[in-house]
Amino acid sequence: QAHEVLATPGVRKFAREEGVNITQVHGTGNHGKVTKEDVLAFKTGGSQAGT
């Protein structure tokens, strides 16, 4: 569930608009919080969950 991921409402919306499943994104923020940059990195084939 997207709302269970540590990410602000704005970043969750950004991920939806970019077509990224935020639950798959590795968060680099505080306590694993997903940032906008994390979403973009995932989209361009960067980080994966669990890596």
Binding site: A2, H3, E4, P9, R12, K13, R16, E17, G19
Partner: peptide
Amino acid sequence: HPSIVDYR
């Protein structure tokens, strides 16, 4: 729009 019900 790709909006969904997404609240914590």
